[in-house]
Amino acid sequence: MFKDIADVRQKLGQQQYIASEEIGTVVYLAHALCKPILAEGPAGVGKTELAKAWALSTGMPLIRLQCYEGLDESKALYEWEYAKQMLYTQLLRDTLRNVLGDVNSLAEAASRLADEEDVFFSENFLLPRPLLTALTSDEPVVLLIDEIDRADVEFEAFLLEVLSDFQVSVPELGTIKAKHQPMVLLTSNNTRELSEALKRRCLYLHVDYPTQDAELEIVRLKVPDLKPDLAQQAVAVVNQLRNMDLRKMPSISETLDWARALVTLNAASIDEKTLTNTLTVLLKYEADVQKARRMMGGEGDGGRYGRYNR
């Protein structure tokens, strides 16, 4: 699939994803060792984007499972299509009458019906959810299990079988093994600690905010319409904000949103007015916005943004 780490980085780069050497190494290892990746880091640094770029660069379809509190097997793995089963029983009423026509007692009818129940619990009535779709797919896929830290601990335990043996057990059908081993990427925003067992099965990748140069490169790649000097200025402002004690730091996706906003507003430079009008694109809490305004206005005459509040 990938020749070496440089090949991984180049192919991800073609999908407009700038991968660090570490990301390249981990993705390469995931292929070489057939292991899932657990990507942790603050929200909005491109963990989900990595899965999308990975799928596009390898030409594999992407199957996404978004985790949330209360997610269970029936929503993640499979469900029996009760409506379809009911419809079939109605449609097959006559056939059923023929099968049960000559019985004399209720017990005999029930036992004969039980012999036929395999018909109703077959793959025809199975509604595959993302996990089963990924396992039974005819071609290898990239499976994104997004925000695993939001799911319950029971679901995490259930995932262990899928991630280590790439198989699932459906009581009515037996064990279903993966036709092709999917490439799995789990993401977590680190709101809670994941179990040791889950971590042990994965390669660990910590994606952090990028360096100023790397972020500038991302902005140039994703928002080519933004003037170079303005892009540099914008990235510098975002980096300065990240050094502050804020409730929520601006993420890369917010930097990109801001860059697009600047393009849309036709901003010539980041002056006080533009900053005041657009700061809410970067910061999502009123307290943070106030703090940032104070900081940028209160750096004194020598301050970089001091001139804006004069």
Binding site: T25, K199, R200, L203, Y204
Partner: peptide, 13 residues
């Protein structure tokens, strides 16, 4: 650098 990243990805979670 690659050696370091590969050890870190596999050993430190």
């Amino acid at each position: 650098e690659v050696f370091r990243s590969s050890l870190r990805a596999t050993l430190v979670k």
